[in-house]
Nucleic acid binder design. Structure first.
Length: 425
RNA sequence: GGAGAGAUGGCCGAGUGGUCGAAGGCGCACGCCUGGAAAGCGUGUACCCUGCGUGAAGCGGGGUCGAGGGUUCGAAUCCCUCUUUCUCCGCCA
């Protein structure tokens, strides 16, 4: 959510910037400005009436005290008139506030000036590549064919238990999952992230705080009886730790990481191109989250990108890093880098991580502020997050790139974690 | 799930209808004192909206005592609903 103050003062700039995201903000901003103007005039009137009421109430008290009850009655009558008028104005004011809120949440975050213009993934900017793409090999298979009949990752069994998109990992596949989680967390620890274990269900306030509500409600699983949502990413509970908080600047930067299962309904986005592990309703992920001073949030972003890159490098997977163009970026992001890993069996790039700086967009909604030492005023902090990493597509990449005949070799760094150096099919 | 007691500022804790954004204490900040420190003394110490002012300092208005509603001229104080904490009982990994 963009701060109202910014909209009031920089409307032209906002309209220009949002063109990068292919978003025409002219109308919305126009409506915001006029609604806000009305709201403020109204509020001034309401406050003045309220002030009169407060004064009258005080006088009435005094009058009763000195026994002038007749005058007190007269004064009471005056309050009745003011109150009735005040009630109507307040209703109008509430409606305007709601209207404003509804408008403001429609505005996406401003893209950073380095974000390329563009509409689709074709306009994204390739930053760099790494690793080695395996030689083409006609025997190489996509992971779903590779594992077919082994039960290692059993999609059909998952259907029996739950439904499509909820696979059962068994034997070495289950152990590989556990190994990856521990590997990622240990690496994160070394990189200075604090480990947290948040709830994987959140309330409405939290879902609203990070922007899953109101628009992305359909993407979340919900416990109707309790009004709780299964988290689509650890970003939600971890970032909400800081909701309504005022940090002092020496607490920054905050660097948190959490492993959680993630749940996504992925309503309507199912298709033939998302077979196997490419898209699931439940998957595991280690998420990193930072809260930063605005002055150095982009250093934080670079730091996170380098960290994620180190993980992919350690796993020996061929990857590329892409800066998303305006049209491909999320609503809330100011700048996003995507990590894609080449899955040799499918011959496709799979997105395994997305690292973003939200600047103050999330913080504004969360009311996450900080205060500089010796400063009286609070300012919005910057929030950032990224996957480090999401498991399923990493597993797909490992399976497809490390297949040698009937064996899948484990990368060196994982062997201490898995306890085996290869999976025999 | 049943019964009872609570929820007040960074923390502790007073406050049961008007002069309460809230006593007192702790903590913190600044100043005095000191060779330096402790102690002592003094001052200050929530957040949001809004008006004047340059978005500074400052001054003024409104709101906020878990949340939301209600009673009243007036609510931290009374009533209702919800959330949550604690104690006892029940159940349980």
């Amino acid at each position: 959510m963009l701060p109202l103050k910014l909209i009031q003062e920089q409307s032209g700039f906002i309209i220009e910037r949002l063109k990068i995201k292919n978003f025409d903000a002219t109308q919305i901003i126009g409506s915001i400005l006029s609604a806000d103007e009305k709201r403020r005039t109204l509020q001034t009137r309401i406050d003045m009436q309220q002030s009169d009421l407060n004064n009258l109430a005080r006088e009435i008290g005094q009058l009763y005290k000195v026994g002038k009850s007749q005058e007190a009655e007269l004064a009471k009558n005056r309050t009745f008139e003011i109150k009735e008028d005040n009630r109507l104005l307040k209703e109008e004011h509430t409606a305007l506030e709601q209207q404003l809120q509804d408008l403001v949440v429609q505005l996406p975050n401003l893209p950073h000036e380095l974000v390329p213009a563009g509409r689709t993934a074709d306009d994204n900017l390739l930053i760099r590549t790494g690793g080695v793409i395996p030689e083409p090999d006609p025997d190489r298979k996509p992971h779903w064919d590779l594992l077919a009949g082994t039960g290692l990752i059993d999609f059909e069994l998952g259907v029996k238990l739950t439904g499509a998109g909820f696979p059962v990992y068994q034997r070495e596949a289950a152990r590989l999952q556990r190994a990856l989680i521990n590997f990622f967390l240990d690496q994160g620890l070394k990189a200075g992230f604090t480990e947290v274990q948040p709830p994987i269900m959140v309330n409405e306030d939290s879902a609203y705080g990070t922007g899953q509500l109101p628009d992305k409600e359909a993407q979340m699983y919900r416990s109707e009886a309790d009004g709780l949502y299964l988290i689509p990413t650890a970003e939600v509970p971890v970032t909400n730790i800081f909701r309504d908080e005022i940090l002092s600047s020496d607490q920054l930067p905050v660097k948190y990481m959490a492993y959680t299962p993630c749940f996504r309904r992925e309503a309507g986005s199912w298709g033939s191109h998302v077979r196997g592990l490419n898209r699931l309703h439940q998957f595991d992920k280690v998420e990193i989250v930072q809260v930063r001073h605005p002055d150095n949030s982009y250093e934080g972003l670079e730091e996170m990108v380098n960290y994620v890159e180190s993980l992919v490098n350690l796993l020996g997977l061929p990857y590329r890093i892409i800066r998303l163009c305006g049209g491909d970026m999320s609503f809330t992001s100011a700048m996003t880098y995507d990590f894609e890993v080449y899955a040799a069996g499918q011959g496709r790039w799979l997105e395994v991580s997305s690292v973003s700086n939200f600047e103050s967009f999330q913080a504004n909604r969360l009311k996450l502020r900080f205060r500089d030492k010796g400063d009286k005023k609070t300012r919005l902090a910057h929030t950032l997050n990224g996957s480090a990493l999401a498991l399923p597509r990493i597993v797909a990449g490992l399976l497809e790139n490390y297949q040698h005949g009937n064996e899948i070799l484990m990368p060196e760094v994982l062997i201490p974690y898995t306890g085996f150096d290869r999976i025999r099919l």
